[in-house]
Design a protein around this nucleic acid. Structure first.
Length: 107
DNA sequence: GAGATGACGGGCT
DNA sequence: AAGCCCGCCATCT
């Protein structure tokens, strides 16, 4: 049950991200109290289901870019979703974190 | 229970 | 500036 609890914790954080804003994996990890757990956050999102209602597409890496995944075109979909919310991507395929990064509270 | 994996991050070459 | 390597964390095999 603890494992499911961890996922739930990550989802809870991601759910607080407003529309048109993004957060980094490391940021979410910090909110959980795990300063170096960015990787684990990515793992949690990997197991996320489409029907969970969690805005996973608002989570990007420290550079403001979308991390490539093994299978599926989720990365492309993520970009489309963000652009649909008004988030603009630079030429490098990254967003300006100074402008779109949302501040999240610890859980 | 031990070793390998990965939607990351930071540091070094 | 770009790329490579090592370290962290929770989960999977």
């Amino acid at each position: 049950m603890d494992e499911l609890n961890y996922y739930e914790r990550v989802y809870g954080i991601v759910a607080t991200v407003p529309v048109g804003r993004v957060v980094t994996y490391g940021q979410v990890a910090r909110a959980l109290g795990v300063n170096r757990g960015a990787r684990a956050v990515g793992y949690a999102l990997r197991a996320l289901s489409d029907a969970d209602g969690v805005p996973w597409w608002r989570v990007v890496n420290a550079r403001g870019g979308i991390s490539p995944r093994g299978e599926g075109h989720g990365a492309e979909i993520q970009r489309e979703m963000l652009e649909g919310e008004g988030v603009e991507f630079g030429l490098a395929g990254t967003v300006d974190l100074r402008r779109y990064r949302a501040e999240i509270a610890a859980r």
